[in-house]
Design a protein around this nucleic acid. Structure first.
Lengths: 132, 132
DNA sequence: GGCCGTTGCGTTACAGTATAACGTAACGTA
DNA sequence: TACGTTACGTTATACTGTAACGCAACGGCC
């Protein structure tokens, strides 16, 4: 088992939790490099991969970035809504919608294994303000 | 207006239509480089951006790749189902599901502007075969 | 305890993806 | 023709991600 590995994962997760906005792998790397200047990309990516497997972290495919999962239950299939204005990401778990999606696709014989649902737009907080 | 630009767009679209699988920008570039060895990445990316704006091409965020739109009506919000086995991509247009998604999100004050829905799995053709 | 296989981490180096920035060609206007 | 505008080609470089190798750490066996 890993001790170093788990420590890195904890550090990466801590960095992600400090921000509400998604961070790129290299932004995480930059933060961790302060303490450990020799840290390299694969270390961060491996930690992220482990954290995603555990469900503690989600990857935003449309941004090439990562966020800490905010749900207590770490669902794998969630809807990520991304504010184009402030960058915050919200998670919604909608089992009904997901099963509906799956059943639509299975009608044409497609068996889903992984869902990527990312919606860009404007969050409630930013919607109230004047649009910059 | 562009003459060169439109020609590039047509070439890029032709390359994408030749394949049913998604192609990366650099795969497209490699094909077009046969005729025009001096073609560079920005040329391809600009053509792809224009084609996406027109709805002729979709970007697969989770693959960093592009496919030609197969629908006659070039919808912006479609569901892309990607076979992990053979790589083919199918498009489904499901207005009901989309509006349902939008209404769920707008309950929390989120206003969607762009939907990224990509489902990975196994297509009908590959599902029948033994799994390699 | 000492030896050895397995596992996974750190590190180097590089592959793949994307864009900033600048010069210039092409077109419209006067 | 001279000039302004627009968008294209080109160079260079930034950003994102991973292959591959060596070593350290742990566990089983003698």
């Amino acid at each position: 088992m890993s001790t170093r590995g788990e420590r890195t994962q904890a550090q990466v997760l801590a960095v992600l939790r400090k921000h509400e906005c998604p961070l790129s792998a290299y932004q995480i790397l930059a933060e961790l490099s302060r303490d450990n200047p020799k840290m390299a990309p694969p270390t961060v990516y491996r930690a992220l991969a482990a954290l995603m497997k555990q469900g503690h972290v989600h990857r935003l495919e449309s941004l090439n970035a990562f966020v800490a999962c905010k749900c207590d239950v770490h669902q794998r299939a969630s809807i990520l809504s991304i504010c184009n204005n402030c960058g915050t990401v919200a998670e919604s778990v909608e089992p009904e919608l997901m099963s509906q999606l799956s059943s639509i696709l299975s009608k044409s014989g497609f068996e889903p294994t992984r869902h990527v649902i990312e919606v860009h737009g404007r969050c409630a907080a930013c919607g109230d303000e004047a649009s910059p």
